[in-house]
Amino acid sequence: MTCATQPAFPATETMFSRILTSALFAGAAAGLIAALLQLAFVQPVLLHAELYESGELVHFGAEAVSAHPELPGMFSELTRDALSVIFTMLTYTGYALMLIALMSVAEGQGHKIDGRTGVLWGLAGFIAFHLAPGFTLAPEVPGVAAADVYARQVWWFATVAAAVVALWLIAFGSSIVSYVVAALLLLAPHVIGAPEPDVFTGPVPTEIGALFAARAFGIGLVAWVLVGSFAGYFWQKEAKHIAATA
C-alpha cells in the first residue's frame, strides 16, 4: 500500500504516548505545586481539626478553648507529608490523563488546545471533579459525621460523570437542547441529594470546618487551572517533539 501523504498521528501508540507523556509532565508539575500549597494552607487546618477529633481539645467544654493552639510545624511529620506529596502528584496525573484525552478528542474536532485555552479546561475540571460533588458533599474536615463511605463514593462518581457530560455539552453543544440537558445534569445530583449521616457527631468547631472547606476549594481551583494550562502546553510541545523526530 502506498501513502500519498503521511497522516499526522497514524498509530494508536503514537497518539497514546503523546497523551501519556504530556499528562505525566502536566500532572506531576501541577500536583507538586498543589501538594506544597495544601501542606502550607490546608494541612495546618486539618491538624488543628484532628486535635478535636482525637479529643485532645474539646469544643464547648467547661472552659473556652484558644483558637490558636500549638500545632506541629510544617514538615514535622516527614513520612506523612511525603506520602501526601506523592499521592497528590499521582491524583493530578490521573486528572491530567483524563483531561488530555478529552482535549485530544476536542482537537480532533478542530478546537484549539494550548496553554491559554487549557486554563478554561482546568476551570471545567475543577467544576466537574471538585466543585460539583463538593456543592453537596462539602470537603470533609477530619471528624465530621458522614454517611456510609461506599454510598458517598457512588454519589461522588455519578455527580462527577454527570458534570463532565454537562460541561462538554455547554462547551461544544450548539442547540438549546444541549444546554437544557446540561443544566438538568448539573442540578439532578443535588436535587436527588447525597447520602447524609443520621446524626451529627462532629466534635470540630464550625470555624475550622468552614475554613477547611474554603481552603480545599481554593487550592483545588488553583491546582486545576495549573493542570489545565500545563496540559495544553505540554500537549502542543509533544506534538512539536513528535513532528521533529518523525
Binding site: T88, T91, G134, E140, W156, A216
Partner: peptide
C-alpha cells in the same frame, strides 16, 4: 490528600 481534595 483525600480530605484536602474533597474525596469521600
Amino acid at each position: 490528600v483525600r480530605h484536602a481534595t474533597g474525596f469521600p
